[in-house]
Design a protein around this nucleic acid. Structure first.
Lengths: 199, 199, 199, 199
DNA sequence: GATGAATGAGCGTTCATTCAT
DNA sequence: GATGAATGAACGCTCATTCAT
């Protein structure tokens, strides 16, 4: 039986290699070597190179959705939910720098498959944000003029760009902790969407 | 003298092709055909394929910096400056959808050369934002706890992601005008960085 | 003991697959699937892929030689023997279209092994023809100027090409029965080799 | 401009390599080396490996049709026409042994493209034979019961198989001249299709 | 004996870059 | 300067064969 363990090993190796070299510069043989399997073995588990990329997302974003959803469901205050979402995302990205790179770089390879994919798991992830925003609007904690579909993109763009602070190519001089960055983004975004006077 | 006109034609063609197919899927011959020159001609104007990509940015971001700087220098209020920056960026991205795609997609090809490049023109562009933030902090209009280096990344990420609303692959159902989106992002970011009570 | 049954099952499967896809396009896994055994099992019965091809001939041509020889030995008239040979060959080819394809297509893969093989069983098959011709010459029924070594090739070429009428790719509009075709070829070849006036 | 000379050189090289190793065992790099061009150059002149094969036929069979047609048109007697056809074919095959091998081996690679091709140039070649036969039947020189569609296959099969006498793998001990073989085949086939008494 | 997961050599094809014209 | 034919290194993927279970 094709071992699930080997599948995982390849995913992990691919994430690492994609993060380091980018999808197009990554060679199947790089991934195979990193995973300590033969080149051909990869094709027992994945249809083609692109399928590996898709699988990396499917796997990792899936985990993220699960974790974030659980944490958020324990909360009532949309304001706090936002903070949790931001914090959790950044925490995971700092923990798994390769994933951050992969999301950042590869999610942007204009490509039918990725697009199709984005309509699925990734969309679900972003829709967590729009739900929170809508809830906040209903409770009159967030401003009525905020479009949740725009706001979710804004927040994701910010999260994604800021995650690179911890990447291998951080060009900033300073080091920021997850807490620092979470605080900054939460502060800006939270305050940004709140109704005046609702502190 | 190598005609500057031909140089421009190639840049324009490359922007179009990169936007449509992405850097790695774009062929030199695609660009040559689009520019109506021979493949070999491109190498009279550019060192290699990557050099074309760099030049597209250099050129386009340069223009952006010029325009934005001029507009902002006429203003005093950092709050208004932010609004101008955001509005101008989005306006340009909507006007030049190819450029938006190229920035979005290609700026993310992890690559030593792009990185080096980002330390130059692109950094300058982002530093316009941090300057505005610093000015706002000094004038006690913006919160003292905002790190301008983080904030500039946040804003750029938001701008970049939101620009895709007008891209060829906009998966959102609705159509938003530049004004709508500018208002939303300005509202969130402005309010987000302002000191309490300073409306 | 390796079951002879499994050996036969694989031969049968291989004949089918080779006929359908040709030797080079046939995959070991195709044959394994068709034979309902594991890929590896095939290597318990055959040395390698080419060995399977050889075995298909060995087996099938062997059967043919046996049957034809028996029928012919009952006859005395070389003219009738020719007719029997032609009729039996075509009958078998129509019955076993896969074999016809395999002989037609694969026997032509220029290859040392096939050549070596042709010197054996296949040669024996063809030599049935030259024997008949020689016998006819001796009995002064067939023309003395006929070279039996050339004539056997001529007849086999004709038989082989004509067998394709029933193949999956018959491009002729009409349908011909075994009898029609046997009659035609027998008529031409028989009359062709006969001495003038010996009808 | 892509030189017609190079096109020819590649065709010639391919014919040689295909003849020697067979289509599937021939490597593009073998052909390139034989033609003294770079591997990539081949793809400036041919769509893919299979396209080279098709082109070899198109080219060579085309020449054959031209030559044979011209010779035959000078003749009136269908009997002589047959002799010319057979003689010319065998003469060309002996002259160009590589072509003989390629026709023999490759025309049999079951394959949609070859089939489509056979419906064109190759069919035209064979139809020269059926026309001759029909003409002979009309003039009551050939037997009325001969089906020209079957007879053309018979003749081609015979020609094709017999051509291999001169191939690199001739397993016969003896050497036969073109004349010998032409005589034999002409004798058999001609006499085979003729009406009784019409010598 | 039987399995099928694993292997890795091997090849068709692409395309950035060069250079003779 | 301009051209575009030629180059050949590079890589994704296949599949016959092996071997641990």
């Amino acid at each position: 039986m094709k071992s699930a363990d080997k599948h995982r090993k390849i995913i992990r190796a691919a994430t690492k290699v994609f993060a380091k070299k980018g999808f197009f510069n990554a060679r199947i043989s790089d991934i195979a070597k990193e995973a300590k399997v033969a080149d051909g073995t990869i094709y027992l588990y994945f249809k083609n190179k692109f399928d590996i990329l898709i699988s990396v997302f499917e796997q990792e974003i899936g985990k993220l959705i699960e974790q974030v959803t659980e944490l958020i469901n324990k909360e009532n205050d949309p304001k706090v939910k936002l903070e949790i979402f931001i914090g959790k995302h950044l925490e995971e990205m700092k923990k798994n720098k390769n994933l951050a790179e992969v999301i950042h770089i590869e999610l942007r390879q204009t490509n039918k498959l990725v697009r199709d994919y984005r309509k699925n798991s990734f969309s679900n992830y972003l829709n967590i944000v729009s739900s929170i925003i809508e809830e906040g609007k209903q409770k009159h904690i967030f401003r009525q003029d905020i479009e949740s579909d725009i706001a979710k993109q804004i927040l994701f763009g910010a999260l994604d760009e800021i995650s690179r602070i911890w990447g291998p190519s951080n060009e900033m001089g300073m080091e920021f902790s997850v807490e620092d960055v979470t605080d900054q983004l939460t502060a800006i975004f939270q305050q940004g969407v709140m109704e005046a006077g609702k502190e």
